[in-house]
Amino acid sequence: MEQRRDISAQQARKMIIEFSRRANIGHIGSALSVVDILTAIYSNVINIDNLTSNERDRFVLSNGHTSLALYIVLNLAGILPDSELQTFFEDGSYLGVHPDANITGVDFTSGSLGQGLSFGAGAALAAKLQSSGRRVFVVMSDAECNEGSVWEAVMFAAHRRLSNLIAIVDLNGQQAMGYTKDVLNLQPIAEKWKAFHWDTHSINGNDISKISNTLNSLNTTSAQPHVIIANTTFGKGVSFMENKLKWHYMPLSAEEYVQALSEIEQQ
């Protein structure tokens, strides 16, 4: 049974700002976009009570560049110890820009876009073959769907009826050098997944209770794999970051840091 954990998304956002400022790194907008999805999964959905059991649910952060949000949510969930989190971006740490399977609570190393859904499909197929009820959650970015390998995995999972596979696409509309609609248009993305025979849900990806309820309502024992098209706001919670391309890469200045923290604390 999944353990309920009390994770504050506001606290997670605050820590994203603090840690990214301390390390002087970017990818802040993506972390703020995905953090509600991760909060929902680790608060209310995923079964990882025993991290060493093969029966635990699996999680893949396929858009690995949002890892800071994952580290913080894992920490707030009581999985990643403070001592490990505090090594973030230090020389010799495993906690870098992209998650590594050596980190407590991380199942798969990622960083190269377009690979995580295949890993997840394999984990889901293995669970079926091993007659296990465990589920596999794969969080992806929208721009990641530019990769052809994503669609190989999409076809495969539907063909094998991997109902225990749940993909969550963080549809924030941005990628490294522009808006997704301008770089390589993904729309109509929900219809694409539906056409590939996935059980498709398009929801507000910054609404934690909506995400949790949707994920917990899925039939993961038979029929189709599931995809949540999570409509998110890039840079959510910090006004000057929201939907601004700059925050894919740029770190915070001292002034921006103060303003960002102040805005989050007032929410």
């Binding site: 798969f108 295949s118 995995a153």
Partner: peptide, 18 residues
């Protein structure tokens, strides 16, 4: 199917599951 990238990715996920 004719999808070798996915084949190795799927194998990775299966192997992680033992």
């Amino acid at each position: 199917g004719v999808a070798e990238q996915n084949m190795v990715g799927v194998a990775t996920g299966m192997a992680e599951s033992g």
